[in-house]
Simulated assay, not measured.
Amino acid sequence: MATDARLAAELAVTAGDLLLDLRNQGADDLGKAGDFASNELLLARLAAERPDDMVLSEESVDDPARVDAERVWIIDPLDGTREYAKPGRPDWAVHVALWQRGAGLVAAAVSQPALGEVYATDNPPTPPPRPARLRVLVSASRPPRFTGPVAEALDADVLTMGSAGAKAMAVLRGEADAYLHAGGQWEWDSAAPVGVVTAAGLHASRIDGSPLRYNRPHPYLPDLVICRVELADKLLTAIRLSGGLED
């Protein structure tokens, strides 16, 4: 039997391949079709491979019984639906994570099918050395209000990109040094990316520095900081001094 981390990676890749096929076929209402098909594949595979576990998915009705479960898979079958539906955009992903009672996120994988890449907790890459000038990633459509003041405080360039998973993996690859979000998210948006980046030794927290907690009764988890460990204190201080915690 595959380990949980290997299963997460396999599922993320398989769902990603399905999404690429749909994209190449030019399916009608591509975003909706991709969300549905990927979700159905992941649910069927998890039911077969881990029948005793529960699932929290963006594309399925939430079962409140998961809150008392020992193991819950937290999945986003297609993170970055808008980007996926636009020809040529690579900044979308598939998220598969496993939460376990008493241990938190114990396995996770993020695939970026358009790049042919998958990142998993059992074999995360080592982030490359930090460049001289910092780069901070934010959402193109919902950048945090405090983005400007924080970038100025850190003397950093601001970059934009779609998909939470794509932004988190860009930090992991060293294409950016931090990812900030404060415009509203759900557990499935961050669980797998957080599992992968923390396995690689990066920092991940709420914007006030508190831990990211999963499998909560209401799975709203609105803000996020992912960055190199050596930047965390400076970044969190800059957010606090900018008034970002007052939003």
Rank of each mutant, 00 (worst) to 15 (best):
E187A: 14
R23L: 09
L154G: 00
G195R: 10
P51E: 00
G243C: 13
Y214A: 02
R71Q: 09
Q25K: 14
P149D: 01
A85Y: 02
L245Y: 09
G165P: 00
A15T: 04
P128G: 05
L11N: 04
P143S: 10
S111Y: 07
E187K: 11
R6M: 09
A182G: 14
D189W: 00
A8R: 05
D62K: 13
P222Q: 14
M161W: 06
L221M: 14
E230L: 08
R142P: 07
A168K: 11
A65V: 08
I239C: 05
A153P: 01
M161S: 14
P222W: 11
A8I: 06
V96C: 06
P77R: 03
S57D: 04
L134M: 06
L202T: 03
L115S: 13
S139I: 10
D122Y: 12
V13Y: 05
S190M: 13
S139C: 13
K167S: 10
L202D: 07
A15G: 01
D208P: 00
D79L: 01
S210L: 13
K86M: 11
A47Q: 11
A166Q: 00
V55I: 15
V106E: 05
P128T: 05
D122P: 07
R145G: 14
G34L: 03
E175S: 06
Q100P: 01
F36W: 14
K234R: 15
E175F: 05
P219I: 11
D68E: 13
W186I: 13
V138C: 04
A109Y: 09
A85L: 04
P222A: 15
L235M: 11
L236G: 06
N39M: 03
V55C: 08
R130Y: 03
G244K: 10
L115R: 15
A97L: 03
I75M: 01
A238P: 09
Q112C: 12
T14H: 08
A182V: 09
P113Y: 11
P128V: 07
D223V: 10
L42K: 03
G88C: 08
T147H: 02
R45P: 07
L78E: 00
L30R: 15
A108H: 05
K167A: 11
